[in-house]
């Protein structure tokens, strides 16, 4: 893990309705150790500003000296980030955490919902063609990044909650149809907590090994403060223990998560 000052190569609005930006950061060896599902923490607001906590974002994809993250403007920090321009500099910490257990010998299905699609996009890049991704969005105007999945050779199926594009319904329907083919060993799932829980149940029903990427509020991001814990099954009196999303996670085996 490193803390580096990176230059913004691009900070582009890719989905107006959703307020979603694609941010590419360049710095020597910024991507050392990067892997799909791992994340970076970006300092927002500049030094000495009112923001004390860094913002965690999954790495969507990367090359030798750059990383790309995709983020949704949801609050003050991401709003500040969206105002940054090419050539501006950002303080970036990472890569952090444990990512997806990418294994090309295991037939893997990707399932992403809303901003959760960015974490599985990295997995599409590493798994390479042919990989199948099922993606869920609220509505047609929020659909984004399909080209990038395509560029990595992924075969994408989209479902929208309101049926405004492609199929209407829940992502679990798409997932179940895909899993019914009986060809998948594992599923990587990232989205809202409810979406991940439901998808994990669906995967379990088909006997596929499921992994999820959890989100929790973070303090240090490096494992020091115990701020970001999630309940994970354990062989003790409680039957569970707290594990750090930033250190042992964010990717966990779905069967071990206490939802």
């Amino acid at each position: 893990m490193r803390d580096c000052i990176a230059e913004i190569a691009e900070n582009r609005l890719i989905c107006r309705e959703g307020g979603i930006y694609s941010l590419t950061l360049r710095a020597p060896s910024i991507s050392d150790g990067a892997a799909p599902g791992r994340f970076y923490e970006i300092r927002v607001g500049g030094e000495g500003g009112r923001f004390t906590l860094r913002r965690p974002f999954s790495v969507a994809f990367y090359d030798m000296d750059s990383i790309t993250i995709r983020y949704n403007v949801v609050g003050e920090g991401t709003k500040w980030l969206s105002g940054m321009k090419a050539w501006d500099r950002l303080d970036v910490l990472g890569p952090l955490g444990n990512g997806w257990p990418v294994d090309k010998t295991k037939k893997t299905l990707l399932a992403g919902g809303s901003t959760g699609i960015f974490s599985v996009l990295g997995a599409a890049m590493e798994l390479g063609s042919p990989v199948k991704a099922v993606l869920g969005f609220k509505t047609a105007s929020l659909i984004n990044s399909l080209d990038d999945f395509g560029a990595f050779g992924a075969d994408v199926s989209v479902i929208t909650d309101d049926g405004s594009s492609g199929r209407g319904g829940l992502i679990t329907e798409l997932l179940a149809e895909e899993l019914a083919k009986g060809i998948y060993d594992r599923v990587f799932i990232c989205g809202s907590t409810m979406m991940m829980k439901k998808c994990a149940e669906t995967a379990a029903g088909f006997g596929a090994e499921a992994f999820v990427s959890l989100e929790e509020r973070m303090g240090c991001g490096v494992g020091a403060c115990m701020g970001c814990v999630a309940k994970i099954k354990a062989d003790n009196e409680n039957g569970w223990e707290y594990k750090r999303v930033c250190r042992e996670g964010p990717v966990f085996r779905a069967s071990e998560v206490v939802w």
Partner: peptide
């Protein structure tokens, strides 16, 4: 000690609010 249930961290202007609970 298990500590408190999450979320345990929130941001405040120029600072942090925590309720780790001595895990």
């Amino acid at each position: 000690r298990d500590g408190n249930p999450p979320p345990r961290i929130a941001e405040i202007p120029s600072g942090v609010l925590n309720s780790i609970g001595l895990e």
